[in-house]
Amino acid sequence: MSALKKLSLLAIMVLTLGLAFPVEGASDLPESHGFYEEITYLMDRDVLQGYPDGTMRPDAGVTRAEAAIMVGRLKEFDDTPRDTGFPDVPASHKASGFIAAAAEAQLIEGYPDGTYRPENTITRAEMAFILSRLFIVPFRADVSFTDVSPKMRVYEPVQKILAANITNGYPDKTFRPNATVTRGQFSAFLARGLEPEFKNDATIADSFLRDKTKTYVYDTEFGIERHTYNYVPSRNGLEMGFIWSIYREDGSLLTDSVEFETHEQYTFGLPYSESYTELEYPVEVGQAWYTDTLYAAPREITGTGVTVETAHQTFTNAVEVTVATNSEFMEDGHVYYMVEGFGEVKSVNLDGTVTKELIDVE
């Protein structure tokens, strides 16, 4: 074989293998890119691949075909080319196998006219539908985005991915459902649905949510509790997904809990059950809630920048919340303390009895 033919063959091999090009070799993906780690993570899982020319194009809009391919690889669907049922996606289309499989699994859907439009770039609303079907979310967050209303079909999917720390919208409190999703953004959304580490990035500024990669240990009036964020496929016949599980000192399960945050409030509760607001935003003295309801005692922020001692450490930036006595629901008056990045760190009855205290973070 001539040197020229060998060189041509090598070039063809490089272009072909470029479809699985290591992300570190992508010419347009520096480590400084905002979604470098998420893209690397998905590349390692063979969910995301580069282009034959060695680029990743993280800021290019992800097409509906590419979205189906990524979801299909994640779910390990059969990608054998076949009829899709969509008139604009013949069996000869490169993504026909994944599009057919994802449609059969009801993860994607076409348009009212029956088309799929594989080369259209996907919108944030369409992304919300896909991710809300792909990941189990046993709770919903109240959506307060100024451009998403309960009358919109996308409202419930946004509730789910907001509660699951897959998205938190934009700082101006918009979701922008019609905006295009880039390959980097879609990678981030998928990574957050898969790994607690990446969920930590989908928070508002000055968040009170706990670090999902750590275990929090509390001394409570009922004994030692260990709160661990983990993936639970199901519990008592109900699908669960990622949740905080609370274990007793002997390792037995006490219960499962959920914790989520919007631009308006921080909420704690139980999967498929009730939840309550622990903090209303903005955080300022005098902020009060549950003032016009009978099912919970009124709560009011009575201090900020408060110093509070716990067995774990002394915090100097705690928010003090005072809860009034509610005899109807047997809720004693007490004070609890919230800290950014730690959630509730201490609770004290009005008589001085400590009922909950953070003693360790592992």
Rank of each mutant, 00 (worst) to 15 (best):
L4Y: 11
K6D: 13
L7S: 14
I12V: 15
L15C: 09
G18M: 08
G25W: 15
A26M: 10
L29T: 02
E31A: 08
E37T: 05
Y41V: 02
R45Q: 14
D46F: 12
D46H: 14
V47P: 02
G50V: 01
P52F: 04
T55N: 11
P58N: 05
D59N: 13
D59P: 02
I69Q: 10
E76L: 03
E76W: 04
T80Y: 00
R82E: 10
F86P: 07
F86K: 06
D88W: 06
S96P: 05
E104Y: 08
E109M: 08
E109I: 05
Y111C: 10
Y111M: 12
Y111Q: 10
R117Q: 12
P118F: 12
N120R: 10
E126T: 04
M127Y: 01
I130D: 05
S132G: 06
L134P: 02
L134M: 09
I136S: 07
V137E: 04
V137C: 10
D142A: 11
T146E: 13
P150G: 08
K151R: 14
R153A: 14
L162R: 11
A164C: 08
A164V: 03
N165R: 13
N168S: 10
G169W: 00
P171M: 08
D172C: 04
K173W: 05
P177D: 08
T180M: 11
L190K: 03
R192H: 04
E195D: 15
P196W: 03
D201A: 13
I204L: 09
I204E: 01
F208S: 00
K212Q: 12
K212A: 00
R226V: 04
T228V: 15
Y229R: 13
N230T: 15
Y231P: 06
P233W: 06
N236L: 10
N236V: 00
L238G: 00
F242A: 03
E249H: 03
E249Y: 04
L253C: 15
S257C: 05
S257L: 01
V258R: 00
E259S: 06
E259W: 06
F260R: 07
H263Y: 11
Y266K: 00
T267D: 07
L270M: 13
L270S: 14
Y272T: 00
S273G: 12
T277S: 05
W289E: 04
W289M: 04
R299M: 13
E300K: 15
G305D: 11
V308L: 01
T310L: 03
H312E: 07
F315K: 05
F315M: 09
V319F: 04
E320D: 07
V321R: 01
A324S: 09
T325M: 06
T325L: 09
D332A: 14
D332N: 15
H334C: 08
M338C: 08
E340N: 12
F342Q: 04
E344I: 07
V348L: 08
N349Y: 08
L350I: 14
D351H: 09
V354K: 02
T355P: 00
L358W: 03
V361Q: 02
V361G: 03
E362K: 10
